[in-house]
Amino acid sequence: MTAADPLVEDWSPDQVDVMHRLRDWVVAFTTLNQHLAAWMRLPASDANALGQVIWAAEAGTPLSPAQLSHQLGMTTGATTILLNRLEAAGHLLRTRESTDRRRVTLRPTPASRDHARRFLGLAGTEIAGVLRETSPAELRTVAAFLGRMTSAATSVDRRLTESRTR
């Protein structure tokens, strides 16, 4: 891949449009997360973390505290404090499901999961509709593109993190 200065590169209208739409999705998703936080009566950071835990558990791939820490972009210490709050408020369970009893798995409590599901029932209708209306081929194209964008952002993050530790 050739190096490009994003500030002086001559971007096509389609490329600019995609970047704007990615930004718009991030803004819209953040707003939805704020609504979830209000619904759950939690600070936004706690609601975001709980949402990550619920999605992962529902997908059958529950998170460890370290995985959640990485997804949230928080230190492990800050994540532990956040998890302590969620556990004390009755939203989260830490279990040891692996043969390696040191490995902690994060699960939402049934009541918390059900409360979040009621929110999604109210708030997720339009998004679910768009997903259902989109052809499998278009979904695969979008998923592949977003995967490449995520990979690029992860690569940049790794490079920037490494440059700070030198």
Rank of each mutant, 00 (worst) to 15 (best):
R117L: 08
R132Y: 06
E133L: 10
A143F: 12
L120F: 07
R148K: 13
L146E: 10
T150R: 15
A128C: 11
T154E: 13
E138W: 01
T141Y: 04
A152L: 15
V130M: 14
A116M: 05
A128I: 04
T154V: 06
A144I: 03
E126I: 02
R132K: 12
G121A: 00
T141W: 05
E126G: 14
G147K: 01
A128E: 12
D114C: 01
T125F: 11
E138A: 12
A144S: 10
L120M: 14
R148L: 15
S135T: 15
G124P: 01
M149S: 15
A123W: 01
A137K: 08
F145I: 01
G121P: 06
G129V: 01
L139G: 09
A153Y: 10
T125G: 11
F145N: 00
D114G: 07
L122N: 03
D114M: 03
G121V: 01
S151V: 00
F119A: 06
S135F: 08
I127A: 15
D114T: 07
H115Q: 08
L120P: 00
F119H: 05
M149A: 15
I127E: 14
G124E: 00
A153C: 07
L122P: 05
A143C: 00
P110A: 05
E126R: 13
A116F: 00
L120G: 10
P110Y: 03
P136G: 13
E133I: 03
E126V: 09
S135C: 05
I127R: 14
T134L: 09
E138H: 02
A152S: 11
T141R: 15
F119E: 04
R118M: 06
L139V: 05
T150S: 15
G121T: 04
P110D: 14
L139W: 11
P136R: 10
T150H: 13
E138L: 14
A137D: 14
P136K: 03
R140W: 08
G129H: 12
D114V: 02
S151T: 11
R118S: 11
A144L: 13
A116D: 00
H115V: 05
V130Q: 10
E126P: 08
G124T: 08
A128V: 06
S151A: 15
F145H: 12
L122D: 06
D114P: 02
V130S: 09
